[in-house]
């Protein structure tokens, strides 16, 4: 008898769970959580992306100068290239998805 009641209770809970699963999900909450996560991810990325391109550009320019004995001209040329590459990184990071 005890067992039977348990079974009835189980059926009831199963029904409730199935109804809950079938109900439309609160999309907006999930979506806003996703966009917040994306925003934090971007905030972590953007600053470093810009600086990194600049650093690499200067290092490459400096290395080429050493190679061709043209110091400091290639490095000077590479600085604006690095700036643009940094902006390119920014756009790529922000634009995707």
């Amino acid at each position: 008898m005890d067992k039977g009641r348990d079974k009835a209770a189980f059926e009831r809970r199963l029904k409730a769970a199935e109804d809950a699963a079938a109900a439309p999900r609160p999309e907006s909450a999930q979506k806003s959580a996703g966009s917040a996560q994306r925003a934090i991810e971007l905030a972590m990325r953007l600053g470093v992306e810009m600086v990194a391109a600049m650093v690499i550009a200067v290092v490459v320019g400096w290395g080429l100068d050493k190679l061709f004995h043209t110091s400091p001209w290639l490095m000077i040329i590479m600085v604006p290239v690095g700036m643009v590459a940094g902006l390119r990184n920014l756009l790529r990071a922000a634009g995707k998805k």
Binding site: M44, R45, V48, E49, V51, A52, A53, V55, I56, A57, V60, M78, V81, G82, V84, A85, G86, R88, N89, R92
Partner: peptide, 18 residues
């Protein structure tokens, strides 16, 4: 092309420095 190459090369730097 140099801009794209610099942008590509900057990947490990930004990844590690971050």
């Amino acid at each position: 092309v140099p801009i794209e190459i610099i942008s590509y090369l900057s990947r490990p730097v930004s990844l590690s420095v971050r």
